[in-house]
Design a protein around this nucleic acid. Structure first.
Lengths: 126, 126
DNA sequence: ATCTTATGCATAAGAAAATTATGTAAAAAC
DNA sequence: GTTTTTACATAATTTTCTTATGCATAAGAT
């Protein structure tokens, strides 16, 4: 019998995270030579002070997809008696990463236009 | 025979929009007495300069869900020969709207921590 | 010593939330 | 009079995640 520790405890309704996972992965990898899956979850958790916690069930399939799409390459490395799978960006992956991050920035700017809406601003057009 | 005009043309990969729809709806309604579905799509398009375009297939089910959950109430109004369905926030809906918007703001702040990451910052912990 | 937690990968079942497509119908614009 | 816009709605499908399951080694606690 085995026990699995809980790994979900973001302070946000997780819905918001949807659609941002791949961008997060690509950004993380674009700031490092290479990282392995578990390491990515830990770094993201650390950087966001525990506010964003990637789940394995989402992370690994996403990594596999990105690799299949040619954005990532892998290198296996044995540490002690265990195998780590290091991911790094391909050339395509690198430019895609920049694109996706830019897109996310712009999207966040656009969202602000709605979030910072006041009745006055809305009234102009009603 | 009828023809349906295309209504999808956001400048963003639509993925990013996922999870933000309800928050957007609630925010729009919190800045207005009441709005009807089509009006919401038009206002959002206008405010975001065409960058965010809500689709009917997503909007209406979301509105129905929010109503079923007690966040919205509806009033039907006949204009000419057609019926408009005006939505407005309930008391619960109002506080929920504030909550969701706050959550989105905080989430965006957290995302920034990742997006603005530099190799130096990441290196601290690698 | 042994039990638990942490590390490290992976995949499958199910849910949630969207896209896409379809449908109706009146009003306005051309 | 034909097309576009306004205005609703729902169903089929896809995408993307959560949740659960599974295996296995290493480290830390008791």
């Amino acid at each position: 019998m085995y026990k699995k520790t809980m790994y979900i405890c973001t302070m946000y309704s997780k819905e918001l995270l949807k659609g941002t996972l791949k961008t997060i992965i690509l950004k993380m990898l674009s700031e490092s030579d290479s990282m392995y899956g578990y390491q990515i979850t830990q770094k993201v958790k650390e950087i966001t002070e525990g506010k964003i916690v990637l789940t394995e069930g989402a992370l690994y399939p996403a990594l596999h997809k990105l690799e299949a799409d040619g954005l990532l390459t892998t290198k296996k490395q044995t540490v002690g008696n265990r195998v780590r799978k290091y991911y790094s960006l391909t050339k395509t992956g690198n430019s895609d990463a920049k694109e996706k991050v830019e897109e996310l920035k712009e999207f966040m700017e656009t969202l602000k236009a709605i979030i910072n809406l006041t009745p006055q601003k809305l009234a102009w057009s009603i």
